[in-house]
């Protein structure tokens, strides 16, 4: 897919010649966004271990652009930012912000897609969601932009043990270091999707000097 939008230069100090999104320092955003994104803050995971939240984000000016920007050959930006009414209100309208590590997740998913040989569908609330999303109780890699919930691969719905475990194994064999949530109903398990993540990865673009 080649779309002119991919090469459009947008105003901004940290722009890449081949990527149209501006990098912003979350600490410079208006208060309502800082409250929702909590840039650079510590957040404890389920075991009580503190994790540092992302500070640098890509700014997405419009849904139209999100529909056009390729993060990988078969993944467009919009697929990673679908959130519902449970997301913090400022983060449901544009401009939207997504951690810079989202590009790493897209590359991993592209490789996973190659391995499964068909479409990989990320669920709503299953890509990036902020630490103030109502689903976010403890530090989750979703708030780092490094986790995906996949509810369907090709025509297969991942809502049973067999499907989830089969594709989980493919993910772990294909993507070194990837973590997949085990099948099951209790907290920490998943029974109606495949969760995979890269962990709490922070991405700091080269243009960032401070």
């Amino acid at each position: 897919m080649s779309d002119p939008a991919r090469f459009v230069e947008t105003p901004g100090v940290n722009e890449s010649p081949t990527f149209p999104l501006r990098v912003v320092d979350g600490l410079t955003l208006p208060a309502e966004y800082r409250k929702a994104l909590r840039p650079g803050e510590e957040w404890k995971d389920a075991t009580g271990f503190p994790r540092q939240l992302p500070r640098y984000f890509y700014e997405i000016p419009s849904w139209d652009l999100a529909m056009k920007i390729e993060l990988a050959s078969h993944f467009l930006l919009w697929e990673f930012i679908q959130v519902d009414v449970r997301e913090a209100p400022p983060l449901r309208t544009f401009p939207r912000y997504v951690p810079c590590a989202i590009t790493l997740l897209a590359v991993c998913l592209e490789r996973f897609r190659d391995a499964v040989g068909t479409l990989v569908h990320i669920s709503a609330n299953g890509g990036y969601r902020s630490p103030t999303h109502r689903f976010s109780k403890n530090a989750t890699p979703h708030a780092w932009g490094t986790a995906a919930n996949i509810y369907r691969i090709g025509d297969t719905y991942l809502d049973n043990r067999s499907a989830i475990e089969r594709f989980s194994l493919i993910a772990r064999e294909t993507l070194p270091g990837i973590w997949t949530r085990p099948y099951g109903a209790p907290t920490g398990f998943a029974e109606d999707h495949l969760h995979l993540d890269l962990g709490y990865v922070l991405s700091v673009p080269r243009d960032v000097k401070n």
Partner: peptide
Amino acid sequence: ELLPHSRVHVRNRFLSVVENIPFR
């Protein structure tokens, strides 16, 4: 708090009022 066009994630997993056991 909601708009008529506010979007809701369609997910078939709910918790029973009995011990929060999931059901579909």
